[in-house]
Structures are given as C-alpha cells and as structure tokens.
Write a protein that binds this DNA or RNA. Sequence first.
DNA 1: GCTATGCTTCGAACCGGTTCGAATGACGAT
DNA 2: ATCGTCATTCGAACCGGTTCGAAGCATAGC
Lengths: 340, 340
Amino acid sequence: MVNIGDVARAAGVARSTASYALSGKRSVSDEVRRRVAEVAAELGYTPNAGARALATSRAMVIGLLAQFLPDEFAPAMLQYIQGVANTARDLGYDILLSSDPDGPAALKRLTDSRMVDGVVLLNVAEHDERLPVLRAAPQPGALVGLPGDCTGVDVFDLDFEEAGRAMVEHLAGLGHRELLLVSQPEHVIERGGAYVWRLQNAALETAAVRGVHLRVVHGSSSQPDIGRDLHALLDAHPETTGLLLNNEAAAAALPTVMHERRLTAPADLSVIGRYSDEFARTFSLPFSSIESAPDRLGRMAVRQLVRRIEKELTDDAPHVVRFVAPELVDRGSTAPPPAR
Amino acid sequence: MVNIGDVARAAGVARSTASYALSGKRSVSDEVRRRVAEVAAELGYTPNAGARALATSRAMVIGLLAQFLPDEFAPAMLQYIQGVANTARDLGYDILLSSDPDGPAALKRLTDSRMVDGVVLLNVAEHDERLPVLRAAPQPGALVGLPGDCTGVDVFDLDFEEAGRAMVEHLAGLGHRELLLVSQPEHVIERGGAYVWRLQNAALETAAVRGVHLRVVHGSSSQPDIGRDLHALLDAHPETTGLLLNNEAAAAALPTVMHERRLTAPADLSVIGRYSDEFARTFSLPFSSIESAPDRLGRMAVRQLVRRIEKELTDDAPHVVRFVAPELVDRGSTAPPPAR
DNA sequence: GCTATGCTTCGAACCGGTTCGAATGACGAT
DNA sequence: ATCGTCATTCGAACCGGTTCGAAGCATAGC
C-alpha cells in the first residue's frame, strides 16, 4: 500500500512537505503542490485512516447508537438511521453503527477507544443508562429523544406535547366527544419512553379543557398481536368516533382491521396518527397524521454534533434542547362524527 | 486520556511488558500480569483504536455497503443490515455503515484508507460497479446477492431459481392453470437485479413443463403506485387463480387491494410470496411465502468474511458461492382454484 | 555590502499502540 | 565453578500520518 513517504519520494520532497502540499495547511510553492498532487493521484495514494486519527485525534467518524428492541417497530427506526447517515456523509463523516443491546458498554468502548469523534443516541429514554457514560466521555453527543436530564448534551425531539394537543384539538374542533388514544405497550413507558406519556398527558389535558372524553389504551407493538388488540378495543368502545394513534404498529395494522370491520375513514371513524410521511407511504396509510420528521431530527442532531466536534461551538457553549413543531398532514381521514 | 504508558508506569514495568501482559501474546509472570490488569482496570484504560489499527493493520471494523435506492423497498433492506450488524458484533467487529449513493467511490475510500478489514456488499447487481473496486482492494469481501462474475469474492444468496420453481410447482400441484407473477419494476432489472429474472425464468420454465400458463408483469416498487398497479392487473387478467409475488411492495399492498376487491385468499385467489417471516409479521401478511432469510444470509456473509480476515482461510482458499435453499412457510393462502 | 524579511522546505518529534531481539537473572546440569 | 537453558523483562524500532521549529535562500531595504 502506498503511503505518504512514497509520494514524497516520488515527488522529490520531504514527507512533511508532501503533507502540507496535500492538506494546504502551510503554503507550498505552486510547482511542488502540483507535482505532489500529480504523483499522489498517479500512485493512488489514500491516507491511512488509523494513522491520521492517531496524529490528529480526529477519526472523522460518528457513532450511531441504535437499539433494535423487540418491542420497537423496526421500520420506524430505519428512517432515523437514514437521516443520520446521509447527513453525516454530506459533512464528511462516516458512521459507525452499533446495535449492541448493551448500550452503555458499547458507548463506553466507542468513546474511550477514540473510534468516534462524537455520538448520536437514538431512542433516548427518560433515565437513559447511556447518558452517564456519554457525559463522562470526552466526545460530544447529540440525542434524538428527550431524557429527564439534558445537561451536557444537545437534544432534538418532536414536540410531543404539542402533538397531543393538536390531535385532540383537531378532532374536538370537528365535534368529536368520544376519543380513543392507542398508545405504546406499557413496558415501553416503564422502560422510559417519555414521548409516550408526554403526548398522552397533553392530550388528556386538552381533552379536559375541551370537555371531550379521551380514553387512553395501550396496544402491543408487534404484529399480529396489535391487530387483535385493535379489534378488542373497537369492540369494547363502540361509542368511539375518533381514533388517535401514537403507536406505529397500530397504524400499520389499522387499515386491515378497519376493512375487516367494514369501517371506512372518515365516514365511520375519524383517524389521526403520529408518524412520518415516508412511513405512511411505505405502509399505504390513508390516515392524516402528525409528521414525526425523523429525517429532519437526524439531520439536526448530526449538524449540531459536527459543529461541536469542529469547535465552531466552544466547549461551554450552552447546550440546546430543540423541539420540532408538529405539522398535521391532511390525508382526509377526519371529518365530523357520523350522526347517531 | 490514559494510555498504555500510564498503565506501565503505574505498574512499574515497561510499555512492552504491559502490552504483553494485557494481550497474553508472550508469557508474563503471574505477579506482573495481575498488577497490570489491576492498574489498567483502576485507571480505566482502553486501547486507542487508531493506534492499534496502525500497529496491527487490523481495524476490527467491517464495512457494510448498503444503498438505499428510491426504487428499493427500504424495510426489506433493514433486515439484512440487522443480520450483518448482530453477527459482526458477536464476532468482535464493529460496523461502518455506508449509504453513499456512489458505491464504488465509498468502497474505494473505505478500503484504501484501511478503515475496514473487510466489506459486505448488499444488494449486489449483475454487473455491479463496486466489484472491480473490491477485487482491487487488499481486503476480502462478501456479497449478498449473485453477480455475473463471482471471482475473488464469497457470495451468498437465496436460490431464486429454486424459489421460482417451488412457487409454480406448489400452485400447479394444487390444480392452478392461470398464474400471474408480479415482479419488480423493469428498471430494477435493467440496473442488474439478477434475482428478478432468475426467479422469473425458472418459474416460466417450470410452468412450461407443467403445462400451466404463467404471465409475468412488472409492478412499481413504491406505494401508492403499486396498489393501483395491482388493481389494474387483476382487472386485466380476471382468469388468474394464482398470484406469485417477487416484489415486497406488492406484498405489502396486496391485503388492502384484496379487501377493496372483496377477495379473500385462498377462497378467491391463491397467493404465494417471496419475503422473510419477519417482513410478513411487520406487514401482517397472511400469505404463504418462500422465506428469503435475510438474517441468515447476513450471518453467513459475515462469518465467512471474518474467517478470511483472520486468515483461517488461506488467501488462495477457493471462494464460495452458496445458495440458501428456499423454504415454503405455509400461512394457508393457497388452495385448489375455485370451481368456475 | 550587510542585515532584515518572507517564502519554501526540511528534519525531527510525536500520537499510542505492537513486536522483535537482546539483556538479565535464576536454576539445574556437568 | 562454568555453562546452558529457560522464564521474564526491557529498550528500540516501527506503523503512517501531522506539526513545530529552524534552516536555506532570494529579494528588498538601508
């Protein structure tokens, strides 16, 4: 493999000169710069990443910690990964993907070994065990998801409170009085999935203010269980005229369930979900929804992270907690409730 | 950050001794080994990955080249990624994920810079432009997907020919005479998606042998277009009693389409697909299918790759082309055709 | 004519590991 | 007492980059 010494020799200059010629960090005569560039291209020189990382203490790699939990709906996760990966590449960074179920251990290894210059954590929980590890690490970190304690990290998340309010307001405004919110399974909340109750509490509060009845139920997050759950729920609560979904699996299963029950939206039932447009396309979901913007969140997280890595932000620059405003994508699945 | 020099000093030995004590590559007195291990744990020593990679020319990283093409169904891709990531982790390797649309350039950079010890290519095309780059690289590579030329790489793929035969045999055996195969869009074939025509040709051949009529059609690979396509196809070919799917998007969309047409499987139409069990669960697909085993393929690819990296296989050990035998998962969506 | 200045270039040190050859010392055999 | 053997440890070199200080040299200024 050709190294910078080979290039320097072939160009008839010192190694350091070749380095400066290629990096441009010091001025070099045009003649030499040209010759070095030429020789480098000719020999097919590519700098050794390990050596460069050692010398500069910059790996040009961002760690991406994603956990594929059995009770998470994997396709929803993929979009965050794509958002992060694409943005990182655009900014010149590679991404090291960890799917290790032992998040804290994986994070510690990645940061301590200096394999990564910074870290993006997906699917952050209220009391996320990875956070103490991240705070102790010398590299900066950006989160997608809101933990209880945001000190020392940059945080990006959908404004789930506002999402809950918007969903209820929308249906209440159309005249609905009996709403059903299908939420994530209870153990997702127990594990610290704060977004679940953030949306849920705001929805309940808004319902109280508007004087409408909102019942919260938990559904399974996997097929085919969620389909059975939905049938059971609709059986148990026939008075429901508006359905709110904060559970991707439920959204994916609902069209089939509604067909089976010979229900159509919005004639028989108004439905509003919370998922991304991409997700809606993938699953052919005909329901209006609050856009969860995974690509945007991934992009924001990486951009901020890179700013910190490259010290555009001083170390003590205040950390941000930024919420994406929910946007309602109207797919025509809501209308005033049917006359009784 | 604490380095091996700090550990050595604190333990009162030379750097080299500390290194040997930790790696066990030479014998060291029990006393010293114990003390070094103790001190290392106490100081929280983690070896610097760049330095180690430089010294050993081993990065302990595997490159994963996945392309998220607009005409590929992303959720199907995710399962390969998970399979590769999990197996790599189990074998002690990290995964560097590249989603760069310019595959050859990304591959060249990853290999030439020695960031990775080997590479897994997903979604390999008949004349894949990444292959010449991979063959020129010093690292070994494993493919998921069968290219025209397999020299110099290990190849793993589903036996799509056998899959095509099995699907047709199954339906012909039940008495179907009019079959419709929904394939990928034509530009997937043009781009070199060999698996499409491998399955298709074998299916046509088998149909000819069995004397049944098989029509091949191409469907869009994204929602909602594929739904419209399916409706149009069923309108145009009402004689069809058996449907074969080699298009994930079509499989995902079919339940809705069938509901809309008030068709049920297998009473009105027998359906058989080609996708993974995981995929079937995610999309609540009620159709029998040929298992595409993405996790197994990912695992096989990584295991073989690691064997090559670690020189358990000599450099000139013959490369393998291994096909996974298709397995029919019966979900009860096929039966003899309805009496006319 | 001599020094100050600026542009190029070079050599050496450094990042943090691993690995090779050799030095040291204890011990048993002759 | 001497030599050889073995286990243990050390020092130095090396991997391939980057970066600092200084040297070389031509030109301008006095």
